[in-house]
Amino acid sequence: MRWAAATAFIRLAGLDGTPVDPGLLSRAVTELTAAARSPFDRVTDYCEGDLFGHIERTLHALPPGSNPSVREALDACLPRIVWDYSGSRTRRAIQELFPTPQPRPAPRYTDLTAAQQQLLGDLAGHRHTWLIRSSADGLRDLGLPHTQEALQSFVRAHHTA
């Protein structure tokens, strides 16, 4: 309920150019940040159930610089690609979370940041194998596992170690 209210508030805030109370805006952004950090089941029909993509689009509707906490919320959404049906969020997440190739030999899963682990874990378990295939060249160029099977082994090695 709070996520829906925060989303509606932000979406409606900029429609007519009326100034928005900074305290209310801050509370709405804080709510969306909390939602982005939480595991969830499908909670919306918008964006084909892609809550993280929906939060990103909502926050991008705000004028730049309107709230300094927006970056934190966007960062929380970045590695969450479980419902990325177009592949664009996945490609952007790979580029932003892995800006340079990984050292050789490749790092262990546990040596990666939490956001990097989240992204690779989501890819390993993604139900649309085309998404991994469409990202394979970029993952390979970065020195990362680039097939779903390799990603699953990479992630599983951490959980069984």
Results as ranks from 00 to 15, higher is better:
E96M: 09
W130K: 10
D84M: 06
L78W: 00
Q152R: 11
Q117E: 01
E72V: 10
T113Q: 01
L62V: 10
W3I: 12
A124Q: 03
A34E: 15
Y46N: 05
D137Y: 12
Q152E: 09
G53S: 02
T129A: 14
V82W: 11
T58P: 08
F154R: 01
L15Y: 04
T147I: 11
R80H: 03
L139D: 06
T110V: 07
A36Q: 09
E31C: 15
G65L: 06
L142S: 12
R156W: 04
R42M: 15
A157R: 07
D122K: 02
P19H: 06
R89E: 02
S69T: 11
R133V: 08
T100P: 10
A73I: 03
A28M: 06
R80L: 00
R37Y: 15
S69L: 12
S86F: 00
H158I: 05
A4C: 09
N67L: 04
T7Q: 08
S134H: 13
R140L: 12
A136M: 07
S38T: 15
H54C: 05
A106K: 07
W3H: 13
Q102H: 07
R89Q: 03
I81T: 00
I10L: 04
G17K: 04
W130Q: 11
F98R: 01
Y46E: 05
D16A: 09
R57D: 05
H159L: 12
T30A: 15
V29P: 04
R108L: 07
G49K: 06
G23I: 11
A4F: 10
L51N: 06
I94M: 04
I94F: 01
G65M: 07
R92Q: 10
M1W: 14
L15W: 05
S86G: 03
H54R: 07
L112T: 01
H54F: 04
H159Q: 13
D75H: 08
A61W: 12
L97V: 07
R57V: 06
T30F: 14
F154W: 05
Q152P: 03
R140P: 13
G17T: 03
R91K: 10
I132N: 04
I81H: 02
S134W: 11
Q117R: 03
R71W: 11
A35W: 13
A93T: 04
V155R: 04
N67A: 08
V82S: 05
L120S: 03
P63Q: 14
V29A: 07
D111T: 05
Q95G: 10
I55E: 00
V70S: 00
R27L: 15
S88H: 11
D16K: 08
W3S: 12
D50F: 02
T44Q: 08
R156I: 00
H126V: 07
Q118C: 12
W83G: 01
A35K: 13
A93M: 03
P79E: 06
P68G: 07
R104T: 14
R133F: 03
S153T: 12
P101T: 09
T44D: 08
R71E: 13
S26I: 08
P145L: 10
Q102G: 06
V155C: 03
T90I: 02
E56S: 09
A5I: 14
I132M: 09
L51V: 10
D141F: 14
P68E: 08
L139P: 02
P64C: 10
C47M: 09
A73Q: 00
P107T: 02
Q95K: 12
H128L: 15
Q152I: 05
A28D: 08
A93F: 01
L139G: 01
V155F: 01
